[in-house]
Write a protein that binds this DNA or RNA. Structure first.
Lengths: 222, 222, 222, 222
DNA sequence: TATGAATGAGGCTTCATTCAT
DNA sequence: TATGAATGAAGCCTCATTCAT
């Protein structure tokens, strides 16, 4: 079990990516986006009306369409950048090096990353909910999802797992199975606490540590 | 690792529940339900139109409303029974006894249950997809979900995990964490293969075994 | 100058074409079409609103879209059949034979045809006005116009003019110039009295005769 | 048939009218007018948007409304002066005198005028198209049209025709019929070649001569 | 003078639901 | 029971026009 580690090192190399790149929005446009996030998250994209968004944003309905050609473009403009920002740290080239250089144990590293992403997710919970809801129905989001996950994040994680397998620290099971196991256990933690049981009290640090412990135990070479 | 086991024993005690309780539907009504499942799964509930459902079912639009007062009632009538059927085996009182009586190892038992539920899910994939999509937006479904999971399935699983903890076979971590870990790893397997990567080829038996192995390793008392 | 001739012979061979082929319309659909003709003719297609059409037709706005998928489809459904009906008599194969068989002089024949088409046009004046207004902006109507005029009516008229040229009765100028001259002089008569000066009193029979006389004089071999 | 005549004489007495009276327009205003002509001609007035005009003109939308109070005023400002310029030569008081003084034959005169107006029309084709399209729907244009045609051009042409009738050179038919015949045959030539078949190759000089020949033949006292 | 963000009325179209047949 | 024409509310979007800068 890792000692309490400062999260900063991770944030150092993510910071320029994590920081919001939503530049130069007018104040009304910002209000539109915020209202859209609220309404989409509450009712789902298809059941949300632009008139309700406009009302909640305190602008005229026509103003929405001055900034976004269609309702769908408004959705995409919200969800699409979130997807890349959410996964950005896992795409970095230095990922593996940082992992070995800056952290005493794999668990430490995973914990740092998990906390960082958890904080990010908590901050953008509604957008992530919208993203999960709409990916099945929006081909454009599917495309972005596949590009990000399929060809970048997946590859990076695969490298890391095989690195540890080569070192004899990870059980000899197929890499895809290991990857799926680890990621769904972590994502499951996230979804359970943020989406399935949003009200339940929890000690985030403890929960993350337990989950990582279980994952590590599961994957450890016997 | 368990030997190849016949799945039948599990089915024996689920059979009366798993068996369809779709009673006395007219042929047209059946066609409506089938069409609705197709369309809801493809476009999502809110983006589906009753006219498209009617057309695909080969009935007049009015006919739908003769059987279901509203579009939402049609949705509920499809999703609601599926939820209980999907979780039914985990609610049975004899669950724990069967587990200890009929199966040599815990892994054997989990494998049998997993295969059984996987087959069930494959058969009703579209409805499950609709269910997952609509639970966040349909209070009635949320209520049923909470009743089933929160007060019945959760309780049953908690009992079982604590049973094994008491026997010293499971690591001493909080039961909710263990439960979440095990279930999300299994559900993650399901969602990955059925929903995220529906086309990918896979050896179901192997995948289930690997996942259970990882879960068991993770939870095993060290 | 021809004696007063009965118009019937011409009508005999056009009758089955001239007769309306608008079959099996519901009463509401008929009211929609009538209202649309009124409004389109008065304001022009682009400046007409479906809500005004619905109101004038005494139906709900949605009812229009039950019968016509779009506003443009409503326009096309009105104008397109009119174009072929208007030109139908000029396309008939027996045109030239009838001309030589049933009428003592070319003038008689032209007079009969002119009266027949004038009556038809008067009856459908508004639709013809819409047609003329919208052809420049509706590619589908342009296509139909080219097919009808370019490849059928033009060809028929060319044959007839060359027939009389061969008989030495028509001046030796290029056939297209003769055709254009004769047709625009006739169409000019129509447009002047029906569209440019709709209120002016006139003796239709006299006007037609004068115009034909002038056309014949103009084209006569000197 | 007249010899090739210089067109200048006609232009001499039209020149001060034909010359553009577009005074003191800013460069932006000019660009707005040009863009409006393009867009109105292509899509029709009602289907054109001020935003498209502004974009094509390279100005802000608001700039249009600084120069023209409404969209309709922009239309009128374009079409209205064109109408008078197009018909100006036919309104001149000296018309008849010029006719008898400067040209050996009536045909010569008509040819000269036709060529002159044809050139003018070719130069302002789009505006004329807009004019023809919008007269039916714009009361203000109708008013101007009636004033120009009804009380001035019509009167002038009537005088000329009756002048030649008195001289025994024109057939004894009602003057309005003669006038309509001649004008629609000429206008028909114009519309056919410029609007109905804009792409077709043609020898303008020949076509005008043929048409005038046919008109003269038609109207000649027998 | 010029801009362009903002407006809100109005346009076309969809759709769940009703009802006479 | 089944139909499908009809409804009208509501949805998305366009657009001429205004106004603060």
């Amino acid at each position: 079990m890792p000692q309490q580690e400062p999260v900063e090192p991770v944030d150092q190399w993510i910071q320029e990516i994590v920081k919001m790149s939503d530049e130069k929005m007018t104040e009304k446009q910002l209000r539109i986006v915020q209202a859209a996030v609220e309404v989409f998250a509450e009712k789902g994209y298809a059941s949300s009306s632009t008139s309700e968004i406009a009302q909640k944003a305190g602008v005229a309905e026509g103003t929405i369409f001055r900034h976004y050609k269609t309702k769908k473009e408004l959705l995409i403009s919200i969800v699409s950048p979130m997807m890349s920002k959410l996964l950005a740290p896992f795409v970095l080239n230095e990922f593996k090096e940082v992992l070995e250089t800056d952290y005493p144990t794999l668990e430490d590293f995973l914990y740092a990353v998990a906390v960082n992403r958890m904080n990010f997710a908590r901050k953008h919970l509604k957008i992530i909910k919208i993203m999960l809801q709409e990916i099945p129905f929006q081909p454009m989001l599917q495309k972005e999802f596949k590009q990000h996950i399929g060809t970048r994040v997946f590859k990076r994680f695969t490298e890391i797992i095989e690195h540890f397998k080569a070192k004899g620290e990870v059980v000899d099971l197929p890499t895809p199975a290991l990857l799926r196991f680890a990621s769904t256990a972590m994502i499951g933690l996230f979804i359970t606490h943020f989406l399935v049981m949003p009200g339940a009290p929890w000690d985030e640090e403890q929960e993350i540590r337990h989950t990582i412990t279980l994952i590590m135990n599961g994957m450890a070479a016997k």
